[in-house]
């Protein structure tokens, strides 16, 4: 009887050990690749909203507590800043993540929705040109004049709230 239990533990233990070693091995191979891809993708996502920049540096900014901005990147050639913003969406708390590039003159270069849970066909219109295009070249004082999407007012307002947060953060970094 005891012998049997020893066998059970031995077999299960060996399988666990061998598989763990295998995972560790594969992890050591893939980890640098994963990190490189993620860094490249993050860089590409920033370049997309601020194409004139040649590189980015994460900067430390004192933001007010209720700011939706999570990260601020400064363009190395002084082309402007990229703001990573996470806020509420129609699909729930902290579900709408966008990035927003603002140039040295304080106008938006471009915006991009990074992840969302908006209703397909309604809230997802925030990603369409008709709405998103309005933000290109937009200064802070014209933000309130942006047209909301009919049928998706809440999604539009959440989006605009996040852009406002980016502008507020811009005022702080650009002081």
């Amino acid at each position: 009887m005891r012998n049997q239990y020893v066998k059970y533990v031995a077999v299960l233990g060996t399988i666990c050990l061998v598989m763990s070693l295998m995972l560790a091995l594969i992890n050591s191979v893939t980890k640098p690749v994963i990190e490189a891809t993620e860094a490249a993708m993050a860089d590409a996502a920033r370049t997309e909203v601020l194409p004139e920049a040649d590189g980015f540096t994460l900067i430390d900014v004192e933001l007010p507590e209720d700011s939706l901005v999570t990260e601020v990147y400064e363009a190395d050639n002084g082309a402007g800043y990229v703001f990573m913003i996470t806020g509420d969406g129609y699909g729930g708390r902290d579900t709408l993540k966008i990035s927003c590039g603002i140039d040295a003159e304080g106008n938006i270069v471009d915006t991009k929705v990074l992840s969302h849970k908006e209703t397909a066909g309604l809230g997802t219109k925030i990603m369409e040109e008709e709405f998103a295009g309005q933000f290109r070249g937009l200064p802070y004082d014209e933000l309130e004049d942006v047209d909301r999407i009919s049928g998706a007012t809440i999604s539009s307002n959440h989006f605009i709230d996040e852009i406002r947060s980016a502008f507020e953060a811009y005022e702080i970094v650009n002081k």
């Binding site: 299960l12 399988i15 598989m19 763990s20 295998m22 995972l23 594969i26 893939t30 994963i34 891809t37």
Partner: peptide, 16 residues
């Protein structure tokens, strides 16, 4: 254990 390990391997490869 075997299945979970293979899933993790596929996960890592796809991620990379």
């Amino acid at each position: 254990v075997l299945i979970a390990s293979f899933v993790t391997i596929v996960q890592m490869l796809l991620n990379a």
